[in-house]
Write a protein that binds this DNA or RNA. Sequence first.
DNA 1: AACCCGCGCAACCGCCCTGGG
DNA 2: CCCCAGGGCGGTTGCGCGGGT
Length: 363
Amino acid sequence: MVLTSDISLDARALKKGPWTSTEDSILTSFVTKHGEGNWNSVQKHSGLFRCGKSCRLRWANHLRPNLKKGAFSAEEERTIVELHAKLGNKWARMATQLPGRTDNEIKNYWNTRIKRRTRAGLPVYPADRAKSCSFKYYVEASDGRSFISGKNADCDLTSSFSRQGGCLDSFHPISRRDNRSLNNRTFMTAVPPSSAVNQGINHLVFEGTINSYHCTEVIRNRQDDRNAVTNESGPFAESSSDESNMISRSDFIFSSLAFDRGYMAGALLSGSDNDLGQSLVLYNQRTTHENPITHYGPPVSVATLKQELPSSQSAVSADSTGTQRSSITNPSPIIPSNNILSETDSYGSNASNYLEALIQVTF
DNA sequence: AACCCGCGCAACCGCCCTGGG
DNA sequence: CCCCAGGGCGGTTGCGCGGGT
């Protein structure tokens, strides 16, 4: 026999919206009596018409003891900036370093801070922090026919995106072959999703041809520290038919670059055919304040990935949403070995979030 | 005084992970 | 091994408030 109380409980919609002081006291006394956890039983046994999740959130963010309220102190703010530089949007982990503060508080603080600084044209990270994570990246054809170089000396790519509405204004391409500056080339982005930009992580996929660039691709970002987005038939195979067309008419497709607060987090070089794929090289270098030695990331190509991944790795893996990813940790034989440090851990430990962006590069 | 607008915060939503059955 | 419920977490939204016009 079904209890009528169960029926009425199911039939009654659970309450949403702001909590009343009565609800607060019911929840507080219940948790005091029974302890934290088993939040769904709170709803069942306390008379609160709130879902377990809502109860947990209310307790964690407002009712539990030793919560600090009010504005963050200068010290706390400094800590948050440091932690965000280190951890990314790991609010819960950050909260463990800030006694009395909740992940929600920290997240809100950070998001409004990002907004403020972006609006003011300031870098997301203070200058001293920015200096600690400069990076450069390069893509070139191994035969020297073309070259593209990206440089961001002050870790400001993130804010550049935000400030310029998506422009990579600190991206200065140069030609290695003849040392000619290519600064007249334009970089334009479109569709920088505001929320992702605000998180400060940019994950780019470029498409181009050897001598003239037309980067137009979208970027699909998944939370994955070490992988760039792609699949076996190229980065855009899962994309729309338009994108597939771009693949077929382009000479090559290169790079899925994940930037995270100035760190090059991941990269993938791919080719629409094997020859081009193998003739292209992408590598990146990262210099951090903590470790001033420049690390060249292992360059990759589709062919290299397929051929040389250790058995423990898979060039392509699928997550639960069906997004396929490619590992990028494998060195390519194309790059002189003295330029490469196999420091796979230098990748992605900071990459945690993603954005979609449409990038157009015209030379 | 009324209206508008932007900001900040609380709360919700949806995804993911984990553990138990 | 699979399924499901519970819980955790990050992203997003909506509302109230205060300042400006």
